[in-house]
Design a protein around this nucleic acid. Structure first.
Length: 572
DNA sequence: GCCGTTTTCGGCCCGACTGTTTTCAGTCG
C-alpha cells in the first residue's frame, strides 16, 4: 500500500470525525498524520518491513496511529474506518467541500433534515426547510446554494502559471494608487505550490477605504464576498478567489509571514514563540502587550533565532530541522541555470526554428541549449529518422560555426519503444552531444513493464537523461505506473540524470519526488520542453519546484558549464 | 490523538468576518 493511499485513509477519518463533532485536536492529529505520511520520503511499508524501525519514531505518529496504520497496511482494511462509515455515509463528506458549510452546520442538516447528498441539500434549500433550523436563516440558505453552484462551476485549484498571470494583473492594477506604500502577494502562490486555491494580496497603507474601493473597481471582479475594516474578499470572473488585507507598515512583515503560511509552518512557529513567552500574530511579535517587531519577515524570524526561510520551503517538513542543525540548503535560483536541455523545433513538432530558439535562449542569458526533437517512433510529432536527424545536426554544426554567442548542442529526445529498447541505432546516438529518452507509447503497460523499459534506457551507454520519468501531469490524468525507487537507484549507479520538465501543466517530478532523488544522489536536470520561444520562460516554474524540494545549485545539473556537465554524464 | 530537559495531564496558533444573535458560534485562512 502506498503512502498516498494511507494518507487518504487518515484524511477521510479526520473528515468523518470532524463531522461527528469529535475533539478538534484529535481531528488535527489525524490530518497532521495524513500530511506527514504523504510527505514522508520513504515508503511506510518499507519501515514496517524493517525489524529495527518503528512508526512511532515519525513525528506526529503515536502508539495509536502506528497500530492503525500497521493494521491498514497488513490487511488492506481498517475496522475503525468501517465503524465510522457505518455511522456516517461517505456521501455527506461532499457537504464539507461547500464554501460556507462546515462540519457543525453539515451535521445539523444531516441529523435534522436527513440530508445525505448534495442533491438532498439542494432540495432542502429550495423548499426553504433549511432556514427553519435553529442557527440558520434565509441568508444561510442563499450562501449554501451559491456555494453549491460555485463548487460545480469553479474548476479545481488553478495551475500556478495561470494564477501567476492573474497575480501580475492584480499588482499592475494597484500600481498607480498612491495610497499603496507596499504591496505583496502571499499564500500558496508565493510558496510556489503547483496549484493555487486563491490569491492573497497584502497592502501597506494608512488609507484602507481607498485601497478597498480601488480593489472593488477591478473589472475582473465578479462578486464581493465580504468586506470588513481590514479584509476584503472577492471572486474574479475566472472563478479565482482573492483576499485583500490592508495592514500598517509596522505589521507588514508579520502579515506577510502570517499569510504566506503554510498553516503547518505557522503552527510550528507559533509554538516556538510560545515556548519563549512570545506571541506572534499578523500584527507582529509581542511579549505580553509589548510590540517587539513586525516591519519585515526577517525581524519576525530573527526574534526566534531563525533564518528567514525561502517561502518555497515553508511547509513544516524539514526546514526547522535544517535551521536547528545549521544546514539550511542554499536553494537553486533561476540565475544559476546555464542551459536548457529539452527543446523542440519546426523539424519535429515545435513552432520555431533552431535559430529562433537559440536567439531567445541567448536573450535569457543562457550559455547553451540542446535541440531535442523527437525520434521517428513519435510519428504524430513528426519524429526524425536517422537521416533527417543527421541533416539537422549538420545544420547545427554550421550554426555554431557562425559564432552565434550561444552553444547549440546536437540532441535528441529518443523514444523508449513499447517492446523495450531505443528508437535509434547506437551508432546514431553515439554522434549526439545529448541524448534524453522518454516513454510516449505503451503508457498503459504494467508498472513492471514500464519500469523495465526505463531501467534498460538508463543502462544504455549513450543516454544522458530520462525525460518525463513519471509521465506526471498536474490536475490531469494519472501518471503512468513506475517504480521510482528502482529508477532512482539505477540512475545513481549509472550516473544518469532525471529531467524535471516544467510546463504549466507538467512537472515530471513532484517536490517530494525531487527530494527523494536528492537522497539517492541523483542529479536533476531542469528543462522547459519548449515548443516555442515564449516557453523558455517556463524555466521559472521548474526552479520553484526544485526550490520546494530543497535542491541546491549542486543538485541541479544544468547549473554547470557544458564542460562540467559532460564530465558529470561521463562524456569527457 | 500527540507530546514532554519545568509537564505522563493538560495543553494543542490566532484573529477577522458573517449571520443570527442580544453576547456568540461557525467558518475560514
Amino acid at each position: 500500500m502506498t503512502n498516498a493511499r494511507i494518507a487518504e485513509v487518515l484524511d477521510q477519518i479526520a473528515d468523518l470525525l470532524e463531522f461527528e463533532g469529535a475533539n478538534p485536536f484529535r481531528v488535527r492529529a489525524y490530518r497532521n498524520a495524513g500530511r506527514v505520511v504523504h510527505d514522508l520520503p520513504e515508503a511506510i511499508s518499507d519501515i514496517l518491513a524493517s525489524p529495527d524501525r518503528k512508526l512511532t519514531d515519525i513525528d506526529g505518529i503515536g502508539a495509536d496511529l502506528a497500530e492503525k496504520i500497521t493494521t491498514l497496511v497488513g490487511t488492506g482494511k481498517l475496522p475503525f474506518l468501517e465503524e465510522l462509515l457505518a455511522r456516517t455515509p461517505e456521501s455527506v463528506l461532499a457537504l464539507l467541500r461547500i464554501a460556507g458549510l462546515g462540519p457543525k452546520k453539515a451535521a445539523v442538516l444531516y441529523k435534522e433534515l436527513g440530508v445525505k447528498t448534495l442533491a438532498d441539500l439542494k432540495a432542502a434549500c429550495e423548499s426553504h426547510r433549511v432556514q427553519e433550523l435553529k442557527g440558520f436563516g434565509a441568508k444561510t440558505e442563499q450562501i449554501i446554494l451559491a456555494g453549491m453552484e460555485l463548487a460545480q462551476t469553479a474548476a479545481d485549484r488553478m495551475l500556478w502559471a495561470d494564477a501567476d498571470a492573474e497575480a501580475q494583473a492584480l499588482l499592475a492594477h494597484f500600481k498607480p494608487l498612491k495610497a499603496v506604500k507596499q504591496i505583496a502577494m502571499a499564500g500558496s502562490y508565493r510558496r510556489g505550490r503547483e496549484t493555487v486555491g486563491d490569491l492573497d494580496i497584502l497592502v501597506d497603507s494608512d488609507d484602507m477605504p481607498a485601497v478597498m474601493d480601488h480593489f472593488a473597481k477591478l473589472p475582473a471582479v465578479k462578486t464581493l464576498v465580504a468586506r470588513g475594516d481590514t479584509k476584503m474578499s472577492v471572486r474574479l470572473d475566472s472563478g479565482l478567489g482573492v483576499d485583500l488585507r490592508v495592514v500598517p507598515a509596522k505589521s507588514f512583515g508579520a502579515a506577510l509571514q502570517y499569510f504566506t503560511g503554510s498553516k503547518d509552518h505557522n503552527v510550528v512557529l507559533r509554538g516556538m514563540a510560545k515556548d519563549r513567552g512570545l506571541k506572534i500574530n499578523e500584527y507582529g511579535i509581542f511579549r505580553g502587550e509589548k510590540y517587539l517587531a513586525g516591519k519585515t519577515e526577517e525581524e519576525i524570524y530573527a526574534a526566534l533565532d531563525l533564518p528567514c526561510f525561502a517561502p518555497e520551503i515553508r511547509e513544516a517538513r524539514q526546514e526547522f530541522a535544517w535551521a536547528a542543525a545549521g544546514e539550511l540548503p542554499k536553494l537553486v535560483e533561476l540565475a544559476d541555470i546555464r542551459g536548457d536541455l529539452h527543446m523542440h523545433t519546426t523539424e519535429s513538432d515545435g513552432n520555431n526554428t533552431l535559430e529562433e530558439m537559440a536567439a531567445a535562449a541567448k536573450t535569457r542569458g543562457l550559455k547553451y541549449i540542446a535541440i531535442t526533437d523527437h525520434s521517428q517512433r513519435a510519428t504524430i510529432a513528426n519524429g526524425l529518422t536517422p537521416e533527417r536527424l543527421k541533416k539537422l545536426w549538420k545544420r547545427i554544426d554550421k550554426f555554431n560555426a557562425t559564432d552565434p554567442g550561444i552553444l547549440v548542442l546536437k540532441g535528441v529526445e529518443c523514444d523508449i519503444l513499447e517492446k523495450g529498447g531505443l528508437d535509434l541505432p547506437d551508432d546514431v546516438l553515439a554522434e549526439a552531444d545529448w541524448v534524453i529518452c522518454s516513454v510516449h507509447y505503451g503508457q498503459n503497460q504494467t508498472r513492471a513493464q514500464i519500469t523495465a523499459r526505463i531501467l534498460e534506457a538508463i543502462e544504455h551507454p549513450h543516454v544522458a537523461a530520462i525525460a518525463h520519468p513519471t509521465g506526471r501531469l498536474i490536475n490531469r490524468r494519472k501518471p503512468y505506473e513506475v517504480d521510482l525507487e528502482a529508477v532512482f537507484t539505477a540512475a545513481a549507479k549509472h550516473h544518469k540524470l532525471l529531467e524535471l520538465n516544467a510546463t504549466p501543466q507538467r512537472l515530471d517530478l513532484s517536490d517530494i519526488q525531487c527530494a527523494a532523488a536528492k537522497r539517492h544522489g541523483v542529479k536533476i536536470v531542469i528543462g522547459t520542453d519548449s515548443h516555442r520561444v515564449e516557453s523558455l520562460a517556463q524555466m521559472r516554474v521548474g526552479i520553484i519546484q526544485a526550490r520546494r524540494a530543497g535542491l541546491t545549485k549542486e543538485d541541479v545539473a544544468n547549473t554547470r558549464t557544458w564542460g562540467q556537465l559532460q564530465k558529470l554524464i561521463g562524456k569527457k
